[in-house]
Every structure is written in structure tokens, then in C-alpha cells.
Simulated assay, not measured.
Amino acid sequence: MTLSSPEQVAVAKANFDAFFGLAGKVFEGVEKLVALNLQVIRSTLAEAQENLTKVPGTPEPQQWFALQAGFIGPFAEKSLSYSRQVFDIASTTQTEVTQLAQTQYERYNNRVQALVEEAAKNSPAGSEAAIAAWKSAIAATTTLYETLQKTGQQAVQAVESNFDAVTATASKAVRSNADQALVATGAKR
């Protein structure tokens, strides 16, 4: 592939920059997710070791059940926290990717508009209808893109608020169930 004009070189550079920008954002998200998973594994192993050291000291079944009930609440809370953090990482990555896509779309749209304007200047007489149709198509595409973008943002916000509500409800239920289990076994937190 040979690039014969400065415009083609600029377009190729912009496309490479966009690709590497997008790849960078995706890898940042993956990196955050891997770090979170390593942190969760590390803390889970430490807690498992701590909990296993407590088991031999519980000779009575009631104490053992109380000990098990005491593990459920914190585990469920941590699971909810983990889910929230994964959602936050995914949401942040999606927002950054969307911003990059919007920037690319705006650049592309500006290039197309400049092309249409240049074509309009150099067009023969009688081609005004075709140029007007091009401009109308560009305006319709821009409107569609903006509408889809707003709809996508609203969907993400709805998912996030639903996730927050479900997480809060689940957290309350877990605490309530853990407290009930502790009460049933006669243990205290």
C-alpha cells in the first residue's frame, strides 16, 4: 500500500492512532479486572486460611454452625462488592471507548462534510439537488448517531441504577439472613 498524498498519510495516521487508543483503553480495562481478580483471590485465600484455623476450636455442632453462619454474611458482602467493582470497571471502559468512538465519528463526519463542500464548489451546474441530498443524508446520519448515543447512555444509566438497587436489596437480605442464622445458633457477631 502506497500513500501518495499528505491527506492519505494523515488519514492513515489518524486511523492508527484511533486503533491504538482503542486498544489501550481496552487493555487498561482488562488490566484493572486482572488486578481486581488477583486481589480477590489473595484475600479469599487469606480468609479461608483464617477460617480453617478456627474450625478445630469448635467442638460443639452449635458452635460450628454459628461459625459457618458468620462466614456467609461477609462472603456475600464481598461478592456484592466484587460485582460492583467489575461493573464499575466495565462501565468506565465502555465510557472511554465510547468517547474515542465519538471523536473518530466527529473526525470522519468533518472529513465527509469537507468532501461534500469541495464537491459542491467544483460541481457542474444543475448538481445542486445531488449536493443537497448528500448534505441531507449527512445531517440525518448525524441525528441518528446522536439519538443512538443518547439512548445508549440512558440504557447504561438505567442498568447502573437497577444494579445499585439490586445490590442494596441483596446486601440487606444477606445481612438479615446472616443475623437470623446467628440468632438461631445463639452466637453473636
Results as ranks from 00 to 15, higher is better:
5 S>E: 05
9 V>H: 05
13 K>M: 05
17 D>C: 08
17 D>H: 07
19 F>N: 04
23 A>N: 05
29 G>E: 07
39 Q>T: 10
40 V>Y: 14
42 R>F: 11
45 L>C: 03
46 A>G: 09
49 Q>K: 12
51 N>E: 11
52 L>K: 07
54 K>S: 10
54 K>Q: 01
56 P>H: 02
57 G>S: 02
62 Q>T: 10
63 Q>A: 14
64 W>E: 04
65 F>E: 00
68 Q>W: 09
69 A>F: 00
70 G>N: 08
71 F>C: 06
73 G>Q: 01
73 G>N: 07
74 P>Y: 10
77 E>D: 15
79 S>Y: 14
81 S>M: 09
81 S>C: 15
82 Y>G: 06
85 Q>S: 14
85 Q>V: 12
85 Q>C: 00
87 F>R: 02
88 D>Q: 15
91 S>D: 15
92 T>M: 00
95 T>C: 04
96 E>P: 01
97 V>P: 00
99 Q>F: 11
99 Q>Y: 11
104 Q>A: 13
106 E>L: 09
109 N>I: 02
111 R>F: 13
112 V>I: 03
113 Q>C: 03
113 Q>L: 09
118 E>V: 04
118 E>P: 05
122 N>C: 05
129 A>H: 10
131 I>K: 00
135 K>C: 02
141 T>S: 15
141 T>V: 10
142 T>I: 09
146 E>T: 07
149 Q>T: 08
155 A>F: 14
157 Q>L: 08
159 V>S: 15
164 D>A: 15
165 A>G: 03
167 T>S: 12
168 A>D: 05
170 A>M: 14
172 K>G: 11
175 R>E: 10
177 N>M: 12
177 N>E: 13
178 A>T: 09
178 A>P: 01
179 D>V: 08
181 A>C: 05
181 A>E: 07
184 A>K: 10
185 T>E: 07
